[in-house]
Design a protein around this nucleic acid. Structure first.
Lengths: 347, 347
DNA sequence: TTGAAAGCGGTACCAT
DNA sequence: ATGGTACCGCTTTCAA
């Protein structure tokens, strides 16, 4: 830790008291113009930076917010963090970011590390946490009155502000568009029910089919888990049956699997099989065929999430907790050629 | 910031002095067994956590290290951070991670935010910083005697420890393997010379060609920039000339571009064109064809980098700065079918 | 308008 | 073995 110049040093140099220097720097009306400019000049000259530890100790604020997310490995989360960073910088707050790699124990450890040294925490919970359904670590934060905001992978029972995407509507529209373009046998690749988004994707998908009078075939819905090896086989079985004319994937990796398997079985995308994916903003446009994708506006989600958190940290405490929904953006690409043509949207 | 129990509180409860409590908790030999266990029990009961601000103020250490990297959006960097996290947790250090999105001004801001509130900084510098060749923000850290370690995107003139991959050897071996399998017209997609790794890739590639007595064709070497739109056209021109029988790409996105263009020109990978990529650990195995890739061991790089940093922070100061090289791992996949068969390696 | 002093929560030296 | 005290750098109340 670098030894910066302190208020005491500056007071010594200028022959005034520490309190005078402190007040001058915070532009207190108590201090005369002359003194203020003397102090400010010296501060600039010596690149004075307030010691954040001392300030925190005194003020009981750390000016740090914690972020706990499953993985740092994609374009979307990178944008979320960018959005959070923007809001944090604006308020002179710093960030501590931890990834859990979707492990419960990592999540608990990260939360514990953060608790006590941050003014608020942003969480998108690990798959494993959802799966085993243990939330005390998060409930404790709320009990401790530490402001918490969850996004994406939220937990209903935790009482805090939340930011999500319009999963239901996205799935409904994606499905309805496919139906409009003549598809009737649409596969759905989602996560198990413990995943909040997947539940809503399923509902939106089912609603769209029902609205069109199409029977829901449960074997067209695959609730997959990435750490189970057989997920590949399940997708392969579904595709090789050749019953489908479209597939909606909630996950980019599953979509890549679909492309690989389709190629293997000489099924042409999009001629025989349309494909559309959630997530995958980073690579969808670089693949061949380019893949239509529904992307979450990560940057905006990050900003909203941070704004809600700062409202709790700095602001007027609102009574009710808010669930803020950010809309997704669909980018039509080659993998749904007919759909895109019909809707005459392109990108 | 949650109000935790303090030493003073505990001293009050137990009717002993603050110093006694402090010493008991740090297991000082000065304190009697009885007192120690009384104090420890109470600490556990009330979940005592040392106030890190107060500790930092006193000790002049923040127990935080800063990380400044270009982007958080890939598997590799996620693993690097995992490695750093492991070493940091071991020493009870916390992390502040900032991404620059490859912008110089973001990098300067991140560094400045971090300087003064961390005990050391790990940097992989932004493309723009390399391009405009401005380093004062990093040189200043070194001058301030703040421990710095750079990895991957390093800057030679900054005097600090560094961790890199064996770029030269990787490129040499990749090229030599392709030559061994009969390829003679090998394209190379790299970044401009300001990128340290690209320079070495080019050298390794040239050396391998020279060793095999193959003339180096400079128009087979494309030094691309992602933010320039024409990078796609340059790749397309190179591939559509149909002069190549193999391509080595230093970047995953360029490799995806190659696949797309090859498909467009009905050039079969790997039959007519072998493809091999650096980076891309996340998706190479999910594409079709699966892509042979040379991956950097992100986790290990993270650990080494952190170890070097902690040596400087905590340890015996070594005189000389170290450049630590971590070897890459080649995973042979479909995109270099013949090469992989010849070398009888698989994955 | 300026300054003295207390205190935030620890640590460590020096007494007892 | 235990306690008193000074101090880390800053903010803030109260006094001058």
């Amino acid at each position: 830790m670098r030894a910066n110049i302190t208020l005491k040093d500056m007071a010594g140099i200028l022959g005034v008291s520490i309190s005078t220097v402190s007040k001058a720097l915070s532009n207190s009306p108590e201090i005369g113009h002359e003194t203020k400019s003397k102090v400010n000049d010296l501060a600039v000259l010596h690149k004075y930076k307030r010691n954040s530890q001392a300030y925190s100790l005194r003020s009981k604020k750390t000016n740090i917010i914690g972020i706990v997310i499953p993985q740092l490995n994609n374009e979307y989360i990178s944008n979320v963090i960018d959005g959070i960073t923007y809001e944090a910088n604006k308020r002179d707050y710093k960030l501590m970011t931890y990834q859990t790699k979707d492990s419960y124990i990592n999540e608990v450890n990260s939360i514990n590390t953060l608790n006590g040294c941050v003014d608020g925490i942003i969480v998108s919970t690990a798959i494993q946490t959802l799966k085993i359904n243990k939330n005390e670590h998060l409930a404790n934060l709320v009990n401790d009155k530490l402001p918490v905001v969850m996004f994406d992978r939220i937990i209903d029972t935790i009482e805090c502000d939340k930011v999500v995407s319009n999963y239901f509507e996205s799935a409904f529209k994606a499905t309805a568009d496919l139906i409009k373009s003549g598809k009737r046998n649409i596969g759905l690749l989602i996560n198990p029910n413990y995943d909040y988004a997947s539940q809503l994707w399923k509902k939106g998908y089912c609603k769209a089919l029902a609205s069109a009078g199409i029977n829901i075939k449960t074997d067209y819905i695959l609730q997959l888990e990435k750490n189970q090896i057989e997920y590949h086989n399940r997708i392969e079985r579904l595709i090789s049956s050749k019953k489908l004319d479209a597939i909606i994937s909630i996950d980019e990796i599953y979509a890549l699997e679909v492309i690989k398997i389709a190629k293997q079985y000489a099924i042409s995308i999009p001629n025989e099989l349309s494909l559309l994916t959630f997530k995958g903003d980073g690579i969808s446009k670089h693949l061949s065929p380019t893949i239509t994708n529904i992307s979450q506006n990560g940057y905006l989600i990050g900003r909203r999430t941070a704004q809600l958190l700062f409202n709790r940290i700095l602001g007027k405490p609102t009574e009710k907790f808010i669930v803020n929904t950010v809309t997704t953006t669909t980018t039509h690409r080659e993998s749904t050629g007919r759909v895109s043509q019909l809707l005459s949207i392109s990108a």
